[in-house]
C-alpha cells in the first residue's frame, strides 16, 4: 500500500464536557478525493478542521492524539500554523470572498506569504483562476469587486484563492451546499480535476455527490469514524450495519 498523505491517530476532541470526536484513526491517500459523510453533528466538519488546525480558534476546545502530514505531527509544539495552512488549504461552506477585487482576493494568500512582485503575482492569479475553472469568466473584470460574482462563481473564486498559495491538501467543508445545481456540477467537475495535483478531503451531506466525486470515503456517526475505505466498496458493500443503514437512507 502506498504511503498515506495524512495519517490520523487516536484523535480525540472535546468542547468542555462534550466529546465531539472519539478516538478517530484513519489514513488519507495523496492525490485522491476522500469524502467524509454522516448525519449532521456527527463530527465530520470538526474532523476536517483538525487537519489544518482551524479548531485552534474555537473557544474551549481540547484536542488529543496526532495528525501526521507527510510524517510530521501537525499538533507538535514546533509547528508553524501559517506554514501548515499554506500546505493545507480550506474552502468553506458559504463562499466567503473578501470585500476587495477579484485579483486582490486571489493575491491575498501569496502576498501574505511574502510574494510582492507584480509579474509573479499576475502569473499566480491567472494560474489559480484557471485551476479553479473561473478564468474565462473573470479575466476581463479582475479589478472589479469579488462580491459582484454569483454564488457559484464566488465559491470557485474561493477555491482559486486557496489554490493560489499552492497547497498540497485542500479541505472542503460542504462546498456546494449553498449553490444551485448547475454551479454544483461545475464545482464537482473541478474537484475531480483537482486530485491530479492535490489531495482533496471533502465533507458532504449529499451521498450522490460523495459517490460522484470520491475515491475513498469515511462514514462518521456520533463522533466516531465507523468505516472507511474505497468509495465504491463503502457505498455498495459496507461492512458495518450502521454504514449500510445510512447509505441506504434508513436514518440520518
Amino acid at each position: 500500500m502506498e504511503r498515506s498523505k495524512i495519517s490520523v491517530r487516536n484523535l480525540e476532541l472535546s468542547y468542555g464536557a462534550a466529546r465531539a470526536l472519539k478516538n478517530v484513526s484513519m489514513e488519507i491517500r495523496g492525490c485522491a478525493v476522500t469524502a467524509l459523510i454522516g448525519p449532521s453533528g456527527c463530527g465530520k466538519s470538526t474532523f476536517l478542521k483538525c487537519i489544518n488546525r482551524m479548531n485552534d480558534f474555537v473557544e474551549g476546545v481540547r484536542i488529543r492524539g496526532s495528525v501526521f502530514l507527510d510524517g510530521e505531527d501537525i499538533y507538535d509544539r514546533r509547528v508553524d500554523t501559517t506554514l501548515l495552512r499554506k500546505k493545507v488549504g480550506m474552502v468553506f461552506q458559504q463562499p466567503n470572498p473578501f470585500p476587495m477585487s477579484i485579483y486582490d482576493n486571489i493575491a491575498y494568500g501569496p502576498r501574505l506569504h511574502g510574494i510582492r512582485g507584480r509579474q509573479e503575482l499576475d502569473g499566480i492569479v491567472e494560474e489559480a483562476l484557471k485551476g479553479a475553472a473561473i478564468f474565462e469568466e473573470t479575466k476581463d473584470r479582475l479589478k472589479k469587486s469579488a462580491l459582484g460574482l454569483s454564488g457559484g462563481q464566488q465559491q470557485r473564486l474561493c477555491i482559486a484563492r486557496a489554490l493560489a498559495v499552492r497547497p498540497e491538501v485542500l479541505l472542503m467543508d460542504e462546498p456546494t451546499s449553498a449553490l444551485d445545481p448547475v454551479s454544483t456540477r461545475k464545482v464537482e467537475e473541478l474537484i475531480r480535476n483537482l486530485k491530479k495535483k492535490y489531495t482533496v478531503v471533502i465533507v458532504t451531506h449529499n451521498m450522490q455527490q460523495a459517490a460522484r466525486v470520491c475515491d475513498d470515503a469515511a462514514f462518521f456517526l456520533a463522533g466516531e469514524m465507523v468505516e472507511s475505505g474505497p468509495g465504491d466498496v463503502l457505498f455498495s458493500r459496507p461492512k458495518d450495519r450502521r454504514t449500510r443503514d445510512y447509505v441506504a437512507g434508513r436514518f440520518g
Binding site: 488549504g89 494568500g109 501574505l112
Partner: peptide, 10 residues
Amino acid sequence: SYRMGALGLG
C-alpha cells in the same frame, strides 16, 4: 467568514 477565510490561508 472573512476572519476564517484569512486565517484559513495562514
